[in-house]
């Protein structure tokens, strides 16, 4: 347990001492800001019955941050250590492979949530200036953030897997982006399958990330979605662990 916390702290510190960490946050804040401006314009022009969070998450900027930001966050986790050789010094200390995988995932996930904090500030600004106090509902915001966290954990674990597979950070980022983008594109697939009653369509409807995020943003916490995200995250973390262990099979 001590090794886990020590490692998590170091990984997390690694994000904040490097230039990339701040670059990621800055880009994310910039995209969130753009999204916020668009949201304000829309609210000025017309009245809407949709919740504010749903308006925010229906802009493409959210997906841009998720699809591009996550690979950049996760690419260094294993690849950098393998490249610089510190993986060897790490793996010759009495820590288990599971602790290493979990610590790296936790650190990335914490950094990811930290990256989304500015969004809370935007919502608070909106809350301060709106004349409709009931437009900002904390339950709604909580549910939206839960969605962000769950989607993030899925993409993060895919990123971990990608990073464990290679020594090159660039390759890790590309694999992670490809995996993430494939998942994202699955949301459009049900629309192209004509018969909705068909079992394929039903299967793919569970992979529809966009629809699921919309649910969360609308304040709808569906346990099916939660189970889906958690199990997918566990699956890819398990695969990551196997990849890390695989050096013993060679």
């Amino acid at each position: 347990m001590q090794a886990y916390w020590t490692l998590t702290r170091r990984e997390l510190a690694g994000f904040f001492v490097s230039f990339t960490g701040y670059l990621i946050i800055a880009s994310a804040v910039f995209l969130m800001g753009l999204s916020f401006v668009i949201l304000l314009y829309r609210l000025q022009d017309e009245t809407t019955t949709l919740p504010v969070t749903q308006l925010f998450f229906s802009t493409p900027f959210f997906w841009l941050i998720l699809l591009l930001g996550v690979p950049v966050i996760t690419m260094r986790l294993f690849a950098l250590e393998k490249y610089s050789g510190t993986f060897e010094t790490l793996m010759t200390t009495p820590v288990s492979d599971l602790q290493v995988v979990l610590a790296k995932f936790t650190a990335a996930a914490v950094f990811y949530m930290f990256m989304w904090l500015p969004l809370l500030v935007y919502i608070l600004i909106l809350h301060h200036y709106t004349n409709h106090q009931e437009a900002i509902d904390w339950g709604l915001i909580g549910s939206a953030f839960l969605g962000v966290a769950l989607l993030g954990s899925l993409f993060m674990s895919l990123g971990c897997l990608a990073s464990a597979l290679t020594r090159s950070q660039i390759v890790a980022a590309m694999i992670s982006f490809t995996l993430g983008f494939t998942f994202f594109l699955l949301s459009f697939l049900p629309g192209y399958i004509p018969m909705t009653a068909h079992w394929q369509a039903q299967v793919f409807s569970h992979f529809a990330l966009i629809d699921q995020m919309e649910d969360f943003a609308r304040g709808l916490v569906d346990t099916r979605h939660i189970v889906f995200y958690l199990s997918m995250t566990l699956l890819s973390l398990f695969l990551t662990l196997r990849v890390v262990e695989s050096r013993r099979w060679k």
């Binding site: 001590q2 090794a3 610089s84 050789g85 510190t86 010094t89 010759t92 200390t93 009495p94 820590v95």
Partner: peptide, 29 residues
């Protein structure tokens, strides 16, 4: 029971000396 220094001595370049050694000591339990 072993202290191992691999070839080319890989370190975390962004850490401070004391911080790194402290981290390694904690990692080693």
């Amino acid at each position: 029971r072993i202290g191992y220094m691999p070839e080319n001595n890989p370190l975390h370049p962004e850490m401070r000396v004391r911080e790194y050694l402290k981290f390694r000591a904690r990692l080693k339990g």
